[in-house]
């Protein structure tokens, strides 16, 4: 009985010690661990411009810190000078953007799938980033007075294009800070023929001065296709002519040339009133000086 009590006491003590020190140990371990994070993104804009974006950061205590001024070399498929895409330093945000040099065009055209290798000094820090060349097409159709946006996604294989099913994408209108979905869903997935058809429900959207909206289809961070964006102008919006009246009004928020009349009147009335009095006082002082030049006053 006594032995059992003693064992229980030791166990309780052990639990207590562990419960006190374990979080500290875990935190200390976590604090000492700093993980380097390197991400590479492939972008294809309007099936025309391709570029890579490299992001370099470290993670410590759940805080991400961008790595500035780190030199990276990015290669296409193999590490050789002829396949060097760019030798580039990260900026203050830990990012580096690079375009494909013209001398890699023939190599790029040779294959449908390419691998990107990132070197930091002599060390290969990223080797498993593959991209399959793909094409995104956007078109507009009107059936029974219903406007539709049709997007087709296809990838290249041996120089030929094949539809890609099950690709998630955003389809909508390009607004100032993002893509506003053209239909009712936030995102859409391509069908077996690689096509997405979105009935356009956003009517009376403000467009440019001619009523043009920029329709956009966007694939984001796809494992094999990367980031692909395609845009098309459509005259589906309401022409927006900015009213100059708002800015031409004489209001408190207007430019300095359009101060309200009441303010101008008040301000200038005060300024003129005060400064004309000051000028009057200066005139009085000048008179005083002139009197003084006549010599001392006569003795009475």
């Amino acid at each position: 009985m006594k032995k059992a009590k003693k064992t229980l006491r030791y166990n309780l003590l052990l639990v207590l010690v562990i419960s006190i020190f374990l979080p500290t140990l875990v935190n200390a371990q976590a604090a000492s661990n700093e993980t380097a994070i390197l991400k590479l993104h492939y972008f294809n804009i309007n099936n025309n411009v391709q570029y890579l974006l490299l992001e370099s950061s470290t993670k410590k205590n759940k805080v991400f810190t961008p790595q500035k001024n780190i030199l990276y070399k990015v290669y296409l498929d193999t590490v050789s000078n002829s396949n060097l895409i760019s030798s580039i330093k990260t900026n203050d945000a830990g990012k580096a953007k690079m375009f494909f040099p013209p001398y890699l065009k023939s190599h790029w055209d040779k294959s449908s799938t390419h691998m990107f290798i990132v070197m930091k000094g002599d060390e290969e820090v990223l080797t498993d980033y593959y991209i399959t060349k793909a094409r995104l097409e956007i078109d507009t159709t009107t059936i029974d007075e219903i406007k539709n946006i049709t997007v087709k996604v296809s990838k290249e294989d041996n120089g030929k294009l094949f539809p890609v099913p099950d690709v998630e994408m955003k389809v909508g209108i390009q607004r100032l800070v993002g893509v506003l979905s053209g239909g009712d869903e936030e995102t859409y997935t391509s069908d077996s023929s690689g096509v997405v058809t979105v009935p356009f429900t956003k009517i009376n959207m403000p467009g440019d001065s001619l009523g043009n909206l920029i329709l956009v289809a966007k694939i984001e961070d796809n494992e094999t296709l990367g980031n692909i964006t395609v845009e098309k102008k459509a005259k589906w919006g309401v022409p927006m002519v900015l009213s100059e009246d708002f800015f031409s009004k004489r209001e408190l928020w207007s430019t300095r040339f359009r101060s309200p009349y009441w303010l101008l009147f008040m301000a200038y009335a005060i300024i003129i009133g005060v400064y004309s009095t000051l000028i009057y006082l200066i005139v009085q002082l000048v008179k005083t000086i002139k009197i003084g030049k006549q010599g001392p006053p006569p003795l009475v």
Binding site: T288, I289, I291, G292, K293, Q294, G295, P296, P297
Partner: peptide, 9 residues
Amino acid sequence: SFWKGHKEQ
């Protein structure tokens, strides 16, 4: 120096 103490001043 111009101040001479004239009544008018």
